[in-house]
Design a protein around this nucleic acid. Structure first.
Lengths: 152, 152
DNA sequence: CGGAATCCGGGTGGATACTG
DNA sequence: CAGTATCCACCCGGATTCCG
């Protein structure tokens, strides 16, 4: 069963140092840190636009509620990725920026952003098919990731 | 802590082509594709180990149930990232591999893997503090997104 | 071995109203 | 402006059971 299968064998990716305590691999560790619907987007916007105020961040990350934004920001802050600065003024002024750790993580997101931009046509078409109701995928689609599919 | 400004202005990241139809940016599009607790891990394992059988993949992605693994694989297949091959044998033999599109996405995950590996110490410490019940984070941890990535 | 179907609890996350 | 508090629908995802 070595040479007779129709699947072309791709060249393997660089190793992931799979022997880590508590985590499957480095990717696993990263995924747990950015686990949360809005965290990658938050990190990336903060990286792009520098320390920005709460309201501006909320406008940038569209479709996010106050509750979720605050919640995820608090977690990111507790994880040492985001730094909050309260200027203690009236009216209130608070801004959020990245720590060095957070900036490193944000930079690691760049290839994902590039991939999405380069393959935007494919992705758009895929989501259009999802919306149209695929015959071959009755429940897997609706139960999958259809929640945030409202077009903005 | 170095003697830096409280809010150091980071060097801006490369642009994200923020004017895309339906998506906030390229990163947003990518995130919707890999939305799902196990999808990035699945993609990465498939990229590393080539076309592998179902059982082997399940062993690689630990802590995943059959239901979730199958579900996410189906979505990845429907999205044109994963290719399933059924050899129609008894006992059944099926393997999963990446399409060119999936391969590209998996390669975009490499920096995240690298970041996790390089910062494994920080991440491990953070999660240890979470488990210990942090005094400074009474409710944000328990009510927050501490566990999963909401595939959304 | 490789799946499919069903039940089901709990967490996620949205909406709304309110505060300083 | 920058949050906070509360309610609750909904979906994720685990366990179990059955099929080809």
């Amino acid at each position: 069963m070595s040479s007779d299968h129709p699947n072309p064998v791709p060249s393997p990716l660089p190793s992931c140092t799979p022997t880590l305590p508590g985590f499957t691999c480095g990717l696993d560790a990263t995924l747990r840190v950015i686990a949360g619907k809005w965290k990658p987007l938050i990190l990336y916007f903060l990286a792009q636009r520098g320390p920005i105020r709460y309201g501006e961040l909320r406008r940038a990350v569209r479709d996010v509620s106050d509750k979720m934004l605050i919640q995820q920001l608090k977690e990111l802050e507790a994880d040492g990725l985001v730094k909050r600065t309260d200027y203690r003024e009236v009216p209130p002024r608070v801004d959020y920026g990245l720590t060095p750790l957070g900036r490193g993580l944000a930079e690691a997101l760049v290839p994902l952003c590039v991939w999405g931009t380069e393959n935007i046509a494919e992705v758009t078409r895929l989501f259009a098919e999802r919306e149209a109701g695929d015959d071959k995928l009755p429940a897997a689609r609706t139960a999958g990731t259809g929640k945030e599919a409202s077009p903005g």
